[in-house]
């Protein structure tokens, strides 16, 4: 069998080489032909839906192309530090943005809090949660999902809530962790975990099949989930990126962000105006 594989590999070598070459050629042309009126934005998983909408509106109004890359903030941070070609970074927290500024990879005076996340206890089953934490005291569930507290701000907030409610011990053996908030949502949506701490923006999302029942967790039970945005160094002379950054801070955009289940802070500095 191994011999056959080796023979196959040998035969395929030339074709593979051609493929690699083709790939290289197309990717370099793509890079060199990238126009200035294109913005590449790295977006934390929880903000996918609002950002898609904002990008669509922005393109309609300005004609600038917006490309979105999604992932956990940690992964995006690692990609940016290793030279990923992003213009704007919408993190799920503030630490990662501060870290980029400290390392000289982001424009220091551009960072601001674009949204404050709201955490919600959610179940895909209707009438399972009665808009209160009572369900957490019951034995009606086998698993409760949350995002990894070490990796995701929503996961950290979820552990703070459990701590505040003194439920850590009780829930310890029922916890399943998603790598990011999207995966956590998936665990609950498929019914594999009966309960989960997810972002309100995910539950509010009309496209996803997310009826179910929920308890909107009072913000007082956890440290605020401040989500920072920043312009990356590579984009400081990209007018489209700066325009999009200003667009994010407009009143109408902020209202849109709110409608997706976030709070916004009014005292934002306007980078484009300051310049």
């Amino acid at each position: 069998m191994i011999l056959i594989y080796q023979a196959l590999c040998f035969q395929m070598n030339n074709r593979l080489r051609l493929l690699c070459l083709l790939f290289l050629v197309t990717s370099t042309t793509a890079l060199t032909s990238a126009k200035a009126d294109e913005v590449v934005v790295a977006v934390a998983s929880n903000f996918i839906k609002p950002m898609q909408r904002i990008a669509g509106d922005f393109k309609e109004q300005t004609g600038h192309e917006v490309k979105l890359s999604f992932g956990s903030s940690g992964k995006l941070l690692a990609q940016i530090t290793h030279g990923a070609p992003f213009d704007i970074f919408l993190s799920a927290d503030t630490d990662k943005v501060d870290r980029l500024i400290k390392h000289g990879l982001a424009v220091s005076d551009s960072s601001y809090i674009y949204a404050q996340g709201r955490l919600v206890l959610w179940s895909a089953a209707e009438n399972f949660i009665d808009d209160s934490p009572n369900i957490l005291q019951s034995d009606k569930f086998n698993y409760i999902a949350l995002a990894d507290a070490k990796l995701a701000p929503y996961g950290k907030a979820a552990s703070e809530v459990m701590e505040a409610l003194q439920l850590e011990k009780r829930l310890k053996d029922k916890l399943v962790t998603g790598e990011n908030i999207s995966q956590t949502y998936q665990f609950v949506q498929t019914g594999n975990a009966q309960l989960g701490f997810v972002a309100l923006s995910q539950v509010n999302n009309k496209n996803a099949n997310s009826k179910g029942s929920k308890w909107l967790i009072p913000s007082a039970l956890h440290a605020p989930i401040n989500q920072s945005a920043v312009i990356l160094k590579r984009a400081k002379d990209n007018p489209a990126a700066i325009e999009l950054f200003a667009y994010l801070q407009k009143k109408t955009t902020q209202a849109l962000i709110k409608s997706f289940g976030y709070d916004t802070i009014n005292s934002t500095r306007n980078y484009a105006d300051a310049r």
Partner: peptide, 8 residues
């Protein structure tokens, strides 16, 4: 391993 990388 993945978690270690993600947590830097």
């Amino acid at each position: 391993l993945y978690n270690h990388v993600e947590a830097l």
